[in-house]
Simulated scan of single mutants.
Amino acid sequence: MPLLTPSTRSPRRRTPGPAARFGAALAAALLAVLLGPPAAGEAAPRPAPSADPGAVRWAVQPSGPGGPTGRNYFTYDLAPGDSVTDHVGVTNLGDRPLTFAVYGTDAYTTTDGAFALLPSDRAATDVGAWIGVERRSWTVQPGRRADIPFRLTVPRNATPGDHTGGVIAAVAQDGVTADGQRVRLDQRIAARVYLRVAGEVRPAVTVESVRVGYDTPLNPIGRADLTVTYRIRNSGNVRVGGTGAVVVAGPGGWTLSRTSPVDLPELLPGAEFTVTERVTGVPPALRLTATVDLAPTTVDTALPPVQRTASVWATPWLLIAALAAAGAWLYLRRRRRRPTSAAPSTTPGPAPVSEPSAAPAGPADASGASVAGTAEPPAGGAAAGAR
Rank of each mutant, 00 (worst) to 15 (best):
4 L>H: 11
8 T>F: 13
11 P>T: 09
13 R>V: 08
19 A>P: 03
20 A>R: 14
24 A>Q: 14
25 A>V: 15
31 L>C: 11
37 P>E: 09
38 P>A: 10
40 A>M: 09
45 P>L: 04
45 P>Y: 02
48 A>P: 05
55 A>T: 07
62 P>Q: 03
63 S>K: 01
67 G>K: 04
76 Y>K: 00
78 L>E: 00
78 L>Y: 00
84 V>E: 01
86 D>S: 14
89 G>M: 09
90 V>A: 11
92 N>Q: 06
93 L>E: 13
94 G>Y: 10
96 R>Q: 15
105 T>V: 10
107 A>S: 10
111 T>V: 08
113 G>Y: 00
125 T>I: 06
128 G>D: 03
130 W>D: 00
138 W>Y: 15
144 R>A: 13
149 P>R: 05
152 L>D: 00
171 V>C: 08
178 A>R: 12
180 G>I: 05
182 R>V: 12
183 V>L: 11
184 R>H: 14
185 L>P: 06
187 Q>E: 06
191 A>F: 03
209 S>P: 00
210 V>H: 08
212 V>W: 07
216 T>R: 02
222 G>D: 10
222 G>Q: 07
226 L>W: 03
235 S>M: 03
239 R>W: 10
249 A>P: 01
255 T>M: 13
258 R>W: 06
259 T>P: 08
263 D>K: 04
267 L>C: 07
270 G>Y: 04
270 G>C: 04
271 A>V: 01
272 E>P: 01
272 E>R: 11
272 E>M: 05
273 F>Y: 15
275 V>S: 12
278 R>C: 07
280 T>D: 12
284 P>L: 04
288 L>T: 01
290 A>E: 04
297 T>E: 12
300 D>I: 07
301 T>W: 09
301 T>Y: 13
314 A>E: 04
315 T>E: 07
323 L>V: 13
325 A>T: 15
330 L>W: 15
330 L>A: 15
330 L>G: 15
331 Y>W: 14
336 R>L: 15
337 R>G: 11
337 R>F: 04
338 R>C: 05
347 T>Q: 10
361 A>M: 05
362 G>E: 01
374 T>R: 12
384 A>L: 14
387 R>T: 10
387 R>F: 02
